[in-house]
Simulated scan of single mutants.
Amino acid sequence: MSTVVKNLKKSFDGFQALHHINLSIKDGEFLAILGPSGCGKTTLLRLLAGFDSPTDGTISLAGTEVANAKKVVAPEKRNVSMVFQSFALWPHMNVKEHIAFPLDHHRFADQAVTSAKEKRILEVLETVNLKEFADRMPGELSGGQKQRVSLARAIAPKPKLLLMDEPLSNLDAELRMDMRREIQRLHALTKASIVYVTHDQGEALAMADRIVVMNKGKIEQIGTPEEIYYHPETPFVAKFVGKANIFTGEWKKDVFQLQQGKVTWKDWGIAEALKREQMYILRPEQLKLSPKIANELTGTIKTKQFQGKEYHYSIEVNGQVIIAHAPILEQYHVGEEVALIPMISDES
Rank of each mutant, 00 (worst) to 15 (best):
S2T: 12
K96A: 10
V66Y: 01
F240I: 06
I155S: 12
G319K: 12
I99A: 03
R185H: 05
Q85D: 02
L205T: 08
S290L: 07
L205F: 06
E277K: 14
L287C: 05
K252T: 15
Y230I: 07
T190W: 00
D267M: 03
K266E: 13
D178C: 02
G14T: 05
D110L: 07
R180F: 01
R78N: 12
I121K: 10
F306R: 03
D104W: 08
M93G: 01
G242Q: 13
K146Y: 02
K160M: 06
L151W: 10
R276S: 08
L23G: 00
S169E: 07
D52R: 03
H92S: 07
A188Y: 07
T264S: 09
A88N: 00
K9C: 12
L89T: 05
V338C: 07
K119I: 02
E227L: 12
E296H: 14
K304A: 15
K10G: 02
P75C: 03
K302Y: 08
L44G: 03
G28S: 01
A69D: 03
A17L: 07
K131T: 14
A339Q: 01
L163N: 10
K266W: 02
M177I: 11
Y230W: 15
V149W: 12
F51H: 05
T298M: 01
A324V: 13
Y229F: 14
E233D: 10
N22H: 09
Q260C: 04
L168K: 03
W251C: 13
E233V: 14
V66R: 13
K304N: 07
L340D: 02
P167T: 10
I270F: 01
A173M: 08
V195C: 04
R276M: 12
A152F: 11
A324M: 09
E220L: 09
L161V: 14
K253V: 07
V263K: 05
K6Q: 12
F306L: 05
Q278P: 11
H92P: 00
Q184A: 14
Q16C: 05
T298N: 15
D13L: 11
F101M: 11
I194R: 08
K119T: 08
S37W: 00
N68V: 09
Q286G: 06
M137D: 00
E347A: 07
K304E: 09
K239H: 12
G28P: 04
G202R: 13
Q307S: 13
S290D: 10
R120L: 01
S345K: 03
E182P: 12
V5Q: 01
K6T: 15
Y280F: 15
L329R: 03
H106S: 06
K96G: 04
L162C: 11
F236T: 12
T248V: 06
Y280K: 06
G28C: 08
L274Q: 07
I344D: 02
Y311T: 11
K218C: 04
V128C: 06
P327T: 07
H187Y: 03
D135E: 11
V317C: 04
P342Y: 03
G63Y: 11
L297K: 04
V321N: 10
Q145M: 05
V66N: 06
N215A: 08
F133N: 08
E277S: 08
I322W: 13
H105G: 01
Y230M: 15
R180D: 06
L163Y: 05
V334Q: 14
K70L: 02
I341G: 05
L282I: 13
A116L: 04
L125A: 11
T190S: 10
K26E: 14
D165V: 09
A271W: 04
Q147P: 14
E337Y: 02
L44D: 03
